[in-house]
Amino acid sequence: MRAARTRAVLTALLLTGTLAVTGCGSGDDGPAPADKAKPEKPAEETDAGAPEKDAPEGVAPGEKAPDGAPATLQFAGSTVDGKSFKGKTLAGKPAVLWFWAPWCGTCKGQAAQTAKLADKYKGKVNFVGIAGLDKTEPIRGFVSSQKVGNFPHLNDQKGSVWKKFGIAQQSSYVMLDEKGKKVHAGAPTGPSELDKLVSGLAG
């Protein structure tokens, strides 16, 4: 009798233990999906921000290469009268960039011819003066006194456009074709060479 009772008690204890183990397993299996669901929320938040990753880092959409402009035309500044200017507006036509300083004697000597060529090739060749190495008032004074106001002039006191084109001294000309490719850089030896260079740009 005692042996039978002992077996019955042992059997009952084994069954209870087995059910307890099974219950822990089912308890682990039950909460598991809930636990796995928690990490998915940050993943969804990350996915929601995915469109921002599509834009170039640190650059607003559409500003990396404005209107597909070539690298040479990706610059901006303010004109001597305070208007904003973007290099991309030069795209589609050849351009003459004239780098000058208001106290430069050579620049003064080239002013009249440069203005004349700007008038002669208006609509065919873009002309832009890029003034530096001085303050706003002398720069404005040069444009007025030398009568070169028939084309825009940038007030490039900080020299950002000068640096972009590797200009080390005034007076210098940089000439770009209609695709923005640099075809000439330097100081013409005289009026006839300048005229020839611009004539070649115009075609």
Rank of each mutant, 00 (worst) to 15 (best):
E44M: 07
A168F: 05
Y121K: 02
I130E: 01
A12D: 08
P70V: 08
Q170L: 03
T16A: 15
V174E: 00
K53N: 14
N155G: 09
R2W: 10
D29H: 05
L197Q: 15
W103C: 04
L154S: 02
K93V: 06
V183L: 07
A115V: 04
R5Y: 09
A43Q: 03
G92H: 02
G27A: 11
G132P: 01
G77Y: 01
Q74N: 12
K182P: 00
G159K: 02
F99M: 00
N150G: 04
S145E: 06
L133W: 03
D67A: 13
F99K: 03
G159D: 10
L97I: 09
W103S: 10
R5W: 07
G23M: 11
P61W: 07
A37G: 06
A112Q: 14
G92P: 01
K108A: 12
E193A: 12
K36H: 12
G186A: 10
R7A: 13
T89C: 05
L15W: 06
A91P: 00
K83L: 11
G25K: 03
K41L: 11
G132E: 00
Y173L: 13
L197C: 14
K135W: 02
Q146W: 03
V21H: 12
G105E: 15
T136G: 02
P102H: 05
N150C: 06
G25T: 02
T189N: 14
P51E: 07
A131V: 01
E45V: 14
G23S: 14
R140C: 05
E45C: 05
A48V: 09
E52D: 14
M1G: 14
C24R: 09
P138C: 08
Q157D: 15
T18G: 08
K116C: 08
K41R: 09
P33H: 09
